[in-house]
């Protein structure tokens, strides 16, 4: 489905606004002191959740295009990726500042000792080069290498989901929902890359 330039632009702008709503809500709840008994934890959970949502949405762009022919989603991928980075930054900042008051000893210890913190930190660190190389100039300059660099999104996604699964004490229903979405998105890619698809097409 081909959309006009204007519609395309409208969709992009709408996404820009919609993706800011979780932040607006957080600020609103903060001003009204309505973030519950543990506001620091609330901010960490909320920003983390939305980073993960944006990440999974950005990974859903290709399948949506290839499977359902929705070409108009393609230009949204970069913005989704950057929103993932934006919420991940807020998440990390809340952790560094509100949770640990930049106590680097404590933070270093926390990262090394606790697997869920470590994978979360790894996911965040790996996403920095992606954010830096997300502009048109870098796409042009890095050419083929750009694609290779941006495959980092797969380990990032796996680490991010693990970060959530390992955080939860017992009821891992929620993290498993995100994990299964990621699994489907990965299966799609393996399916496409490995030629299984063409094999099946032939035998049918």
């Amino acid at each position: 489905m081909a959309l006009t330039k204007n519609t395309q632009r409208l969709i992009k702008r709408s996404l820009f606004v919609v993706a800011l709503l979780p932040l607006v809500r957080l600020i609103w709840l903060g001003i009204n002191e309505n973030m519950g008994a543990n506001p620091v934890e609330f901010i960490e959970h909320s920003t983390g959740t939305w980073a993960l949502v944006a990440l999974l949405l950005s990974l859903a762009v290709t399948p949506m295009h290839k499977l359902f022919g929705l070409a108009w989603v393609l230009p949204l991928r970069r913005m989704l990726g950057l929103y993932m980075f934006f919420y991940a930054c807020l998440h990390f900042l809340a952790y560094l500042w509100l949770d640990h008051w930049f106590d680097w000893n404590e933070i270093g210890h926390d990262i090394i000792k606790h697997p869920y913190v470590l994978v979360g930190f790894a996911a965040f660190t790996l996403s920095i080069p992606l954010a830096i190389t997300s502009n048109d100039y870098m796409v042009r300059k890095l050419k083929k290498r750009w694609k290779v660099i941006h495959r980092l999104v797969y380990p990032i996604a796996i680490f991010a989901v693990l970060h959530y699964v390992w955080l939860v004490k017992k009821d891992i229903f929620q993290p498993l929902m995100y994990a299964s979405v990621l699994l489907m998105l990965m299966i799609y890619r393996v399916w496409f890359l490995s030629g299984i698809k063409s094999y099946f097409n032939k035998s049918i």
Binding site: A37, E41, I43, L98, D99, K113, H114, W166, L167
Partner: peptide, 18 residues
């Protein structure tokens, strides 16, 4: 999963140390 060296006191507000 957690360091037990510090704790967050519930109700101490958004900008308070462990």
């Amino acid at each position: 999963r957690w360091s037990q060296a510090t704790e967050r006191r519930i109700g101490s507000g958004l900008f308070s140390r462990r």
